[in-house]
Design a protein around this nucleic acid. Structure first.
Length: 586
DNA sequence: GCCGTTTTCGGCCCGACTGTTTTCAGTCG
């Protein structure tokens, strides 16, 4: 099918941003002017933050309207978009062996030293770097001693072990555990996660913690002697970095309580958000850093104790941390038009839950009780359908048996509502796993694609189109099928899937399982813009997993969703009305 | 390389930590 420029938005923008970053990397190695390098990185950041398609801008000759893009970079982007390559980049690449960029991946080794090591010693790969360090050839260079050699060796080793980022759920629990320990220390007034954890990004590189204390040295000592510490990477009077036994890197910064707000703002980021915010501050005659917002004229402190004060002084609403990615939130905050983000409290139920009738580990009743304990009004039991043998999918006969159990439980727990649902398999040949007369009998039908995931895009899209076109289908589960860090999405045109879902009035799931988070934040935002309704579900296979709603809601918030965008914020009666209306329309 | 309520030239976000330095450059976030 023809790809309009709109369909590929996220993909193309990301691609162009990477092009510019690679150019910047190579210019660094080359020892170019740091301002020229910064210009490429600045342009890359703006391209990445665009919510419109860069290819469309290019077609309209409007590239230079993007901040940070001038004639030179615009020409390179245009060339790349038209021809798929950049002569400038290829010329740069030709000057260095490809593996030289590897060297820059080593923490502690920046462009200056990498360049020096390359040109003086001929080192051009990680392996050669390690060898040069072991044979003490590195320390013959100016500015590099034995300690640097040892440090680089350790970093190379760690780099080879630690290739991936950590799931938010893993990093969050580690961060909260350490924060809780530090909170007990008498010198600590406040401590909380900042950085990408506070922004609830789906994966986390390093954990950032921020503490308020009048006596930072004591906090540093407490932090670096925690039982979790495997290695102290850095320790200063107000900032330290440790490696935990689980190989998580945690940074702790301590500031005086009087400037905790500005420090929290600063260390929450994102970097892109902060750069844009500092830029705005300068244009208004201020200077912003982790110690506060200062008036340039007389260096007077304007705001610092509370995060909100800083934004307010700059004429902005305070954006929730999840929005701080420089994807339009600063502009929206300036207009007073930040969205009222959906919150975990807004959820009235969960529409994707398993029981021990298929591959869950608990009875339907246990799941119901857990849902009631969370304050829900309803839960949909959506066990797998018959063809999914590995998950003990339910035959039509078993569906009928299960229905009787649900009816009994509905009487027992009224007015709490148990929806008889199914996670219906879209089979490899495109057919659905139950006939229409069975589908009609469910209160809610959610569809998933687990089987034949290796098919090419046309067949996958054909299956999805057929499934979404079925009048009894209400929700499309985990629309891309990706498992973070383990499994790529199946071949799916997500923009087209969203359009089909909108046309057929099928809700799209944000699956809250920490390793799925599918749809992700970027596509969920896109779905909202295209008029889709989303459902924030957990795919829980045990009662405790209903708490995954926290992560699903995090994605929804990062996608700018409001309560009205999420199907399962509807109270029971309205949800039923909506589900019935869909069925009647058939 | 970009940009302009300071500028079409001369600036460019900013501070902490490390290591190898005797006063600071490189790196990171």
């Amino acid at each position: 099918m023809a790809r309009t420029s709109q369909e590929g938005t996220t993909i193309r923008n990301q691609e162009v941003a990477e092009l510019l970053q690679t150019i910047a990397d190579l210019l660094e190695v080359k020892g170019e002017s740091r301002f020229r390098i910064a210009a490429y990185r600045e342009a890359a950041r703006h391209v990445e933050g665009l919510t419109v398609d860069i290819a469309a801008l290019d077609e309209q000759g409007r590239l230079e309207e993007v901040p940070g893009i001038g004639p030179s970079i615009a020409a390179k982007i245009d060339e790349y978009l038209r021809t798929g390559r950049s002569q400038y980049l290829e010329d740069l690449r030709a000057e260095f062996p490809p593996s030289l960029l590897e060297l820059l991946q080593v923490p502690g080794l920046g462009p200056r030293k990498a360049q020096e090591i390359y040109s003086s010693l001929g080192v051009r790969s990680l392996a050669e770097l390690a060898q040069a360090a072991r044979s003490h050839r590195l320390s013959t260079l100016p500015g590099i001693g034995r300690r640097t050699e040892e440090k680089l060796l350790r970093e190379i080793e760690r780099l080879q072990q630690r290739t991936r980022r950590y799931l938010l759920s893993v990093a969050l629990s580690a961060a909260e555990e350490v924060a809780a320990l530090l909170r007990d220390h008498p010198a600590v007034e406040r401590v909380e996660p900042a950085g990408s954890i506070r922004r609830m990004k789906e994966t986390i590189g390093d954990i950032d913690l921020l503490a308020a204390s009048p006596r930072p040295q004591e906090v540093m000592d407490a932090f670096t002697t925690l039982p979790q510490v495997k290695e102290i990477i850095a320790k200063g009077p107000t900032k330290s970095t440790i490696l935990t036994r689980d190989n998580l890197q945690i940074d702790l910064r301590v500031v005086h309580p009087s400037i905790y707000g500005s420090a929290l703002q600063y260390f929450t980021g994102s970097k892109e958000h902060n750069i844009a915010l500092r830029d705005l501050a300068i244009r208004q005659g201020y200077k912003l850093n982790e110690y506060g917002l200062f008036r340039l004229a007389d260096d007077r402190l304007i705001a610092g104790r509370h995060e909100e004060d800083i934004y307010e002084a700059l004429g902005l609403q305070c954006p929730p941390p999840e929005l701080r990615e420089n994807r339009g939130e600063i502009e929206a905050a300036a207009r007073g038009q930040l969205p009222a983000l959906v919150a975990e409290d807004d959820l009235r139920g969960d529409l994707h839950v398993h029981s021990d009738w298929s591959d869950g580990v608990s009875t339907i009743e246990a799941m119901v009780q857990a849902a009631i304990a969370r304050g829900y009004e309803y839960v949909a039991i959506t066990d797998h359908s018959q063809s999914l043998g590995v998950a003990h999918g339910l035959s039509v006969e078993r569906v009928r048996e299960q229905r009787r159990v649900i009816e009994d439980l509905n009487r027992k727990y009224a007015p709490f509502l148990i929806l008889a649902g199914t996670e219906l398999e879209i089979r490899g040949d495109g057919s659905l796993d139950y006939p229409d007369d069975v589908l009609r009998s469910f209160d809610i039908v959610t569809v998933s694609l687990h089987s034949a995931r290796g098919q090419e895009r046309e067949r996958v899209m054909g299956r999805l189109a057929l499934a979404l076109g079925n009048p009894y289908v209400d929700v499309l589960n985990h629309p891309t099928g990706r498992i973070i860090g383990r499994r790529a999405p199946y071949e799916v045109d997500i923009a087209e899937t969203i359009r089909l879902a909108v046309a057929e009035r099928v809700a799209l799931e944000i699956n809250g399982s920490p390793d799925r988070l599918d749809l992700d934040d970027v596509w969920a935002r896109r779905a909202k813009e295209l008029g889709a309704v989303l459902a924030v579900n957990t795919d829980a296979h045990s009662p405790s997993q209903l708490a995954f709603a926290r992560y699903g809601i995090a994605v929804a918030r990062r996608a700018w969703l409001e309560r009205g965008d999420v199907l399962n914020t509807l109270p029971r009666e309205k949800l039923l009305a909506r589900l019935e209306r869909i069925h009647r329309a058939a």
